[in-house]
């Protein structure tokens, strides 16, 4: 937190406090975010393992008739594209181009919301049309818990980035917040990468 107004963009701040110069040259916020992501790897690792263990041991029936693989492939592509815009937003912030960053952030939020909307539609369809519920079968239990946790991560990222987008219209988001956007970007890319693991190990594997 003490990092918010440090030496961005070579723009001279009044005086840099000694506690804001770090040993590694990497800002504290970024180190803490990396540590959090390491921890989050273990969270998802536990959930994915649970799903795969039960897939192996309980021998539940074929679920390919439940999945709508075209829809999920499409939403996977949308989520990947949101990462592209996230990278563009971070780059624009580092160049001090606030307007560009704002548009890119908007695109990330839009694409993230599309992904989330597809997931909400998918869950709704599974529950109401196909009768796959969280307390109906072991597959439903692990599937909804894992993908739902991922969905909550996406939702949290959308809320986080939307806050910055709103601040950008009130002058709260400035050039020196490039670091904050970059840290949010680390989180966003990570959530994306987790989906790249979930997609084959939860969806595609059922077609093998």
């Amino acid at each position: 937190m003490s990092q918010a107004h440090t030496e961005p963009l070579g723009k001279a701040s009044e005086h840099v406090h000694p506690e804001e110069q770090t040993n590694t040259g990497i800002p504290n916020k970024k180190v803490a975010m990396w540590a959090f992501l390491a921890s989050d790897c273990m969270f998802f690792g536990t959930l994915i393992s649970t799903h795969l263990i039960y897939r192996k041991t309980t021998g539940y029936p074929d679920v390919t008739h439940i999945f709508d693989i075209e829809l999920t492939t499409g939403s996977t592509f949308i989520l990947l594209m949101s990462s592209l815009f996230m990278a563009l937003a971070v780059s624009a912030m580092h160049k001090g181009n606030l307007n560009n960053a704002r548009w890119s952030l908007g695109a990330v939020i839009l694409f993230g919301s599309l992904f989330l909307g597809a997931q909400v539609y998918e869950f709704h369809h599974f529950v109401h049309d196909l009768g796959l519920t969280i307390n109906g079968s072991i597959f439903g239990t692990t599937f909804y818990t894992l993908t739902g946790t991922h969905g909550i991560h996406v939702l949290f990222g959308i809320i986080w980035l939307s806050s910055w987008l709103i601040y950008s219209f009130f002058g709260t988001m400035k050039r020196e917040h490039a670091l904050d956007i970059e840290v949010a970007g680390l989180y966003w890319h990570f959530v994306d990468i987790v989906w790249i693991i979930i997609f084959p190990f939860v969806y595609l594997i059922e077609y093998v």
């Binding site: 506690e19 040993n23 180190v31 803490a32």
Partner: peptide, 13 residues
Amino acid sequence: AAFNFIATIINMR
């Protein structure tokens, strides 16, 4: 607390 201590020890010596 652990995120905090890691950032502190790695960065603030």
